[in-house]
Design a binder for these strands. Structure first.
Lengths: 162, 162
DNA sequence: CTCAACCGATTGAGAGTTCAACTATTCCGG
DNA sequence: CCGGAATAGTTGAACTCTCAATCGGTTGAG
């Protein structure tokens, strides 16, 4: 790289505000969930993905992709949540290397208990602070970034309504 | 809370795209910095704040606020970076409880070495993916959120220019 | 059929973060 | 001045995350 394309003043300001907003928001949500439900936000995301899928079960790799988690992180997280009885690991029928992670009833209860407080926090700290137009803009921005960064397995991305 | 204000379909989609984009972006930047410069992004932020301030020195609490770090996190981080010789701790002249953190020359060199690669990553993964209008929107959104969440000591927030 | 390359997932060590507890100092009402 | 409350910062334990190494299972070229 011969010549660095530095950020200009506006870009700097945008970038710093973005960093600040993200860290403050995520830290806040993490604290809320940890305090009220005893789990970090990343674990909550994993449980939610499982809860929305047929049979409440997914292959580890699919679960990792859909929760934006590295394989390693997911392995540790699932091990941890298996101890507390929220998920269970089964062998995969079609690929003996694979593992299927399944949400238990206790795990489902845990989500249901944690969800209202979490959703309320997301609403008050995010959506309540933005105009409807900003919400639309935020979605378009986020989808563009995630698409570029290869966030697969998260949204429809396709479907109708386009 | 009697009744939870759940997210509607559009809000869900926005929220998930936002989560995906943020995690992917931050993980990517963190990996880049860790790989090319051997420091996590949070440490980089701390060093940058110090580098921009008179005397390259700040009280711990101010440094924590301006880098969106908890006191504890900053303490650990500074201890770590002091070992590697990038910062130095001095007593505060006006308050014997206080400590002043100062960027060393070696620390300054470390930033200068890390900056080009980092800035390039921010550009390619963020700004290059957005239209100028989206950059403006992102700044307004981020500033609204950060302001609500009490992100002080980060921007001017005041100053001239409206 | 065989073996090497690849894939799915786990593991352990090292590093960063959080929380709560703690020390030391300053502030302030009486 | 005294003593309690607040402030600045640090510390250790518990926990999460990352990275690289590893292991068994699968796949495909020859």
């Amino acid at each position: 790289m011969a010549h660095t394309r530095w950020l200009d003043g506006d870009e700097q300001r945008t970038w710093r505000a973005f960093l600040a907003a993200n860290r403050l928001l995520m830290d806040s949500l993490d604290r809320q969930l940890q305090h009220d439900a005893g789990i970090p936000h990343t674990y909550y995301e994993i449980l939610v993905r499982l809860s929305e899928v047929p049979d409440r079960a997914l292959r580890m790799s699919q679960l990792a992709a859909s929760s934006m988690s590295s394989r390693s992180r997911l392995s540790h997280a699932v091990a941890r949540m298996e101890e507390t009885g929220w998920v269970r690991r089964r062998e995969c029928a079609t690929d003996r290397r694979g593992a299927v992670c399944e949400l238990t009833d206790a795990g489902m209860e845990a989500i249901k208990a944690a969800a209202p407080g979490h959703v309320e926090a997301v609403r008050t700290h995010l959506f309540d602070q933005l105009t409807p137009e900003q919400v639309v803009a935020l979605r378009e921005i986020s989808e563009a970034l995630a698409k570029h960064l290869g966030g697969d397995g998260v949204w429809p991305l396709d479907d109708k309504a386009s």
